[in-house]
Simulated scan of single mutants.
Amino acid sequence: MARRSMIKTLTGLFRRTGQRPRVCLEIRPDGIAWSAGAEPARAGFADCLPAKRLAVLQSLVTEHGWAGAATTLVLPLDQYQVFQMERPEGVEETELADALKWKLKDFLDFSPTDAVSDVFPFPADASRGRGVLVNVVAARKSLVRELIDLVGNAGLALARIDIAELALRNLVCRLDESRRGATLVHLKEHYGHMVICRDQTLYLSRRLDVTSGDLQDAAEQENAVQSLALEIQRSLDYYESQLGQAPPARIQLVCRDSALPLASMLSSYLAAGIETLDWRALGVDGELDSRCLPAWSAGLPDREVVQR
């Protein structure tokens, strides 16, 4: 793919096309997470090193008959950065990402010329007198180009690029039946991810510094649980005090080691209730491999916001 056409493909990364994606992929350092098919989608994880990605993805395409399928690519949390910035007056929506990209020079550890960026809304009722804000996403152009080439070389048709928290938003909004907000904590091998959404809108996304190894290590477990609970509670406090929102009463937890009673271990340290996500309520038989959660969530269609 020529460089110019690649940049054109990246324009409007996070805008829905109205067409439900058929295949969703998250390319991780340890493998490829995928989901495909009608709701509830099938999902799986293929372990592989980066050097084997193309061969493994081509094998998946052949095995599942995905050739030419419209594909959503989900960027993992550690492959991009999100910043809140004041929206400049008089700038058209289509020009907003480019207008703000050059303000990233003070925040990025690489040049804005090496960045690809886009924007998505910041909730107006959470700005607390800071003006009209937007979320600006930035990722290394070389990384995104590599992933785009991987999808194309495997015989798939890239439809859109998503990011982890906006993919998880699709799931969290389904948990928000009361329309008062819902919280999800997704624990991965080397870190956790906390997302709070209300009325189809992402309000808060936080990385949680915890490893599955510490949570399972008898010598480190108590300190790890307390540290995780403290990070979750601080995020809830920030959501209430700085964003001016009433914190959700319950937290849904997803972690790979379902044998560890982590929800009950955390509950004594948190003001909110916490429980392990019930996959049956989402139409999934058994448990979804938690490594597939962002890819699976990206395939969920948007639900219409209930009009008050």
Score class of each variant (00 low, 15 high):
D217W: 07
N170S: 08
L277T: 07
M85L: 12
V119G: 12
Y239M: 07
D125K: 10
A154W: 02
L147H: 09
I148E: 00
R180H: 12
R16I: 03
V91D: 06
Q200W: 10
A298Y: 02
Q84R: 15
S267C: 03
E220V: 05
P76W: 09
L208V: 14
R291M: 07
L25I: 01
I274A: 08
S205L: 03
I161Y: 07
A263E: 00
L230T: 10
L262I: 11
Y239D: 00
R3H: 15
L96R: 04
L49P: 02
R128W: 07
P261G: 06
L293N: 06
G283M: 08
L270F: 02
R130W: 09
G286A: 05
S127W: 13
L100V: 01
R169W: 10
R22L: 14
S59L: 12
L158F: 05
L104T: 04
E39Y: 14
V82E: 09
D217I: 09
L60W: 00
S142F: 04
A51T: 11
G12W: 01
V225Y: 00
N135P: 04
S212Y: 06
S5T: 15
A126V: 01
K8M: 11
G65Y: 00
K52G: 10
R145M: 14
V136Y: 03
D149T: 09
G129L: 11
S297G: 07
V119Q: 08
Q81K: 14
E86S: 12
F83H: 07
A272P: 05
V74G: 10
R250L: 13
G152Q: 12
Y269S: 10
Q216M: 04
Q200Y: 12
Q221W: 03
D217Y: 08
C255W: 14
R15A: 14
Y239I: 10
L228K: 10
A126E: 06
T11I: 01
R179Y: 11
V74Q: 00
V225T: 03
V119I: 12
L175G: 14
R280N: 14
Y191F: 14
K188I: 04
Y239L: 08
R128V: 10
L133S: 03
N223Y: 04
V225G: 04
E189W: 11
S142D: 15
S212H: 08
N170E: 12
Y80H: 15
Y239F: 15
S290E: 12
W34E: 01
S212N: 13
V172W: 02
S142I: 13
V144L: 05
A159T: 09
I148R: 08
S241Q: 15
P29H: 06
A139N: 05
V210M: 07
A38F: 01
A41G: 06
G90F: 02
F45S: 04
D237C: 06
R128F: 12
A51F: 00
W34V: 04
D289K: 02
E39N: 06
D109F: 11
L156I: 04
F110S: 07
E222N: 15
A139Y: 02
D106R: 15
G192K: 04
R53Q: 13
G299W: 05
S264C: 09
Q221M: 05
S127Y: 03
R169N: 06
E304I: 09
A182P: 00
M265N: 05
L270C: 01
V23W: 05
T113W: 06
L243S: 03
D162I: 02
M194T: 08
P112Y: 11
A224T: 07
L204K: 08
A164S: 12
Q226C: 11
V305T: 13
G131S: 04
T183H: 03
I7L: 15
